[in-house]
Design a binder for these strands. Structure first.
Lengths: 281, 281
DNA sequence: TCCAATATGTAATAAAAATTACAGGATTGA
DNA sequence: TCAATCCTGTAATTTTTATTACATATTGGA
């Protein structure tokens, strides 16, 4: 149970001075609880030992102990879609689609500011290197974008692969990754530990990682050669992935234009494969 | 400017050890910045004086001063999640990304005009009907959007399925479609004949089709109950699918808000399933 | 190659914060 | 009414944290 709920539950059983502390804490959650004992006591109109008795009654060994848990709560709340559902305001008067698109436009604007050109160009350089293979993978919701990007990139350059199947087969598929290969990973909060682990293994195999993530940066950022942070908030109970897809499309477009001759040849070769005229169809 | 944006902006100009501190701070925002100098220094692999130099370079008089502002940032962020996305810094010159995003914004604007509110609401009604199942499928490039939408919708309502595997198994999977079920199909040019055929078979089984397509309308439009045309032009050799994904997200959001109580209950139930704590992991 | 400027970590010191000791007041039950 | 228990704030003490001094390493320019 998060501290805020714990305090709300305990309110009725607290002695007078401790109840004052509880009210001050809830009214100024979470910042006052992350400040000093003296500040909370002062705001509540009580004393430092009263604050210490208050946190002891909640089951904490010390005030630093209490603050450690509170920091964890806050971290989780900034990440949890559920919490945002609780705190989201009323539905706007505008038609739903208009509001949604406005939010997307805002995210695109913010993402444009967040992605340095040097990083974007470095990403294009990685993707334009035909000598090495490109491997794609994403998380629970973003893997569909990885698949989408791989499907498009496969048309304009060779050696494009998408990790597929269960996470248990990722290890097998690692065998096909060679030193110098490029791994394009999509990971937004909540970051997947199996994906983070795979990133570590990819670096061990000397693959170069291009990470497309959110502004809080997946742990994979530590090992990535290039990191593209995309703004994902959408005033919703979950994160929008539009900006990741937009960045993916921009990369595809940029790489396609940079080597239009080779891309055209490959597309022509693809059209020359008359698939639907196979016997039995 | 919030501290996080301030740090992101300053990243490029920081000396090596301070850059480590910045990365550690951003990667563990906000909790590590609310802890001690020693904890942040340890996580970054640097020293306490380096952390002090880092906050001084950002313009703070002391570490408590830095923490005071950070607490205020966190308080504001918990109150207004939407505000987080709205950055105020100047737009860097990133021509390729800027052009790509401008094209997307233009497509979004055009799509907003192309989709009647009555059709959008009708689509939401279809998706909100919990008595019947929802089946998802897309074409060569759009199936990843179908998968994405199914993955999200599955969180807020029951009986969501995504046709998977080879096209040869679609016929088998048709057996699970009941009269009254909703089929959400994504099809943009070039329209796939096997997907068009499946649409016909779905209607034969009395399924209700929601089609998300381009302005020229896939042949499936003939059999669809609701058609949402999305502008896909991107001045490229292939079509952008951003607007289809944007419409998908708008539908998810709308359905989620319309039944926020049931959606919250389902999300809570999902969080109660502690997956990663299974034995053997 | 050398020197000056900058960056960095260790150790010591200063300051701040947390905790404890203690005394007085309030409340409750016999 | 009285005694026991609980609650509370002040002040002192202890502990923790922040800051500074200093020496060494690194980097860049002449």
């Amino acid at each position: 149970m998060a501290i805020r709920e714990q305090v709300q539950t305990a309110l009725g059983t607290l002695p007078g001075a401790e109840k004052k502390v509880a009210h001050a804490f809830l009214a100024n959650y979470p910042s006052i609880g992350l400040s000093t004992i003296a500040e909370l006591a002062g705001l509540a109109g009580t004393s430092a030992p009263t604050v210490l008795r208050f946190v002891a009654r909640l089951g904490f060994d010390s005030y630093p102990d209490f603050q450690r848990v509170l920091r964890n709560d806050v971290q989780a709340q900034l990440m949890s879609p559920l919490e945002r559902a609780r705190s989201t305001g009323p539905v706007p008067d505008n038609p739903a689609l208009k509001a949604s698109f406005a939010s997307i436009a805002s995210n695109l604007e913010a993402t444009l500011k967040a992605v340095p050109e040097s990083e974007f160009e470095a990403a294009c350089d990685l993707l334009s290197d035909h000598k090495s293979a490109c491997h794609f993978l994403g998380g629970r919701f973003t893997d569909s974008i990885a698949a989408y990007m791989a499907a498009h990139l496969r048309i304009i350059r060779p050696n494009v692969r998408h990790f597929d199947g269960q996470t248990s087969t990722w290890r097998d598929q690692l065998l096909d990754v060679r030193p110098g290969d490029v791994a394009v990973l999509f990971d937004i909060r909540r970051y997947q530990s199996d994906l983070v682990r795979l990133g570590e293994l990819l670096v061990e195999r000397k693959a170069r990682i291009l990470l497309i993530t959110d502004p809080w940066l997946s742990p994979i950022a530590r090992s990535a050669r290039v990191v593209l942070p995309c703004v994902v908030d959408a005033n919703r109970t979950w994160d929008s992935s539009i900006t990741l897809m937009a960045v993916a499309e921009a990369l595809i477009d940029r790489v396609s234009r940079a080597q239009s001759e080779a891309a055209r040849a490959r597309m022509q070769a693809l059209e020359d494969i008359h698939w639907n005229n196979l016997p039995g169809r």
